[in-house]
Design a protein around this nucleic acid. Structure first.
Lengths: 224, 224
DNA sequence: CAGGACGCTGAAAAGATGCTGAAAGCAGAA
DNA sequence: TTCTGCTTTCAGCATCTTTTCAGCGTCCTG
């Protein structure tokens, strides 16, 4: 999931990026309306986060221009104002949701998730090696064989597949899959990795979930 | 990964230290802004955790002074206040992230990880000679061959690569990698240098870790 | 040249970390 | 309610990492 942040306060943009990245989103930030519009119109983003008050082109204008180009990427507007008429103005300009600063990070995340969910825009499979994870059915497929993953197994497998170029620490997996508030412990990750390894080998996959001591897990393809 | 905690409430500082140490970070704590600034400006930390409300120099001032010295270590600010203006003030003073007390330990960890990750992700590999250290997978690569480093080996190797123009004394390496409070001795460094030399030559690297008597170690490229 | 300081190494002990199977807890379906 | 499958918990084992240590070689200094 790729998110573009258009926000002239660099530090705030950075902290939004941190927040979203820690949840596994891919983010990019630009710091003025003009570049924002340009980037947004590439059409490669799943969501725009757009500040209203910016020097030069403001958020309303950006939203309006983007929509005028028939780009339907959902837009989340950020503003210091909380007046009804501002909200209406933003929505009329094409925004999908309106968040008043200061906002709670939870609220932002909930909002981002809601917008992405609403779009229903997902890739419908992830492949690596000889193996494929079907995101709509939750099936792990290898050649003729396939096996069903439970919800948790699916989340973990997907996260691993999405992060194939990185080592994922148990900590990160926990906070991403079980959430910050859960009282899940690292052994949960170990157990689920165990489940997944069993299922992977049962369908003859050449994917290995390699444990890297003290660092985390990494997906590898046998014979590479 | 080395973290400096600047927090006048000793109990809170201790509990943060415990938490982070249990996750394998090396921590040090100081209990007032003045010493905090002094330590921070040594530039040997990967992250600062900084309380806003302290007698004497407060967190904003520390952050501002540290930034004024062009020290770009990420700063995580802690505060009891959750007002927008405080958050912005902190961000403007150079903080990278803002956490309101009381905070969840998991949230703190996620935050710390996010900040460290962001920093680490700016460079995702370090190369020298014919050899490359992949920071996201922890692999030491030379041409076709590659070998996995353990967590400690990785830390030492990275430190050497990052300081390729300097001679690193065992003492500096010890304090940086094992931490000031650890009871590690210089032989640890010698042993790890030995491990690394073995791994370097096993993949055919032209890097040598040269010992300079009474001074320390230095990375050199064969045939230069 | 002798002696001491320093650095290197292999082997073994100590310590951490990761894996696993079994069982208990839980929630939804029948 | 009972059944079923998913998730969590736990304890013990296995494995890998880190530390420790003793002995040897080399370099420097007097």
């Amino acid at each position: 999931m790729r998110i573009l942040i258009i926000e002239d306060e660099k530090l705030l943009a950075d902290s939004i990026e941190d927040l979203l990245r820690s949840k596994g989103f891919v983010t990019e930030a630009v710091y003025d309306g003009e570049s924002g519009e340009e980037y947004a119109e590439l059409g490669i983003y799943d969501l725009l986060i757009l500040d209203v008050m910016m020097p030069g082109m403001n958020g309303y204008e950006v939203a309006r221009n983007v929509r005028a180009k028939r780009c339907s990427t959902p837009i989340l507007m950020l503003t210091a104002k909380s007046e009804l008429e501002d909200r209406i103005r933003g929505l009329n300009a094409g925004a999908d949701y309106y968040l008043t600063k200061p906002f709670d990070s939870r609220e932002l995340l909930a909002c981002v998730n809601a917008l992405l969910r609403r779009q229903g825009n997902q890739v419908d499979e992830l492949s690596y090696g000889n193996t494929r994870l079907d995101l709509s059915t939750g099936l792990l497929v290898c050649g003729e064989k396939s096996i069903r993953l439970s919800a948790r197994e699916f989340d973990v497998m997907r996260f691993l597949l999405q992060s194939r170029d990185q080592i994922l620490s148990k900590e990160v997996i926990l906070s991403r899959i079980w959430g910050l508030e859960s009282n899940a412990v690292e052994n949960h990750v170990e157990v689920y990795v165990g489940f997944l390894r069993k299922k992977l080998s049962s369908i003859g996959s050449n994917l290995r979930i390699e444990a890297i001591r003290r660092m985390g897990y990494h997906l590898e393809v046998d014979g590479e």
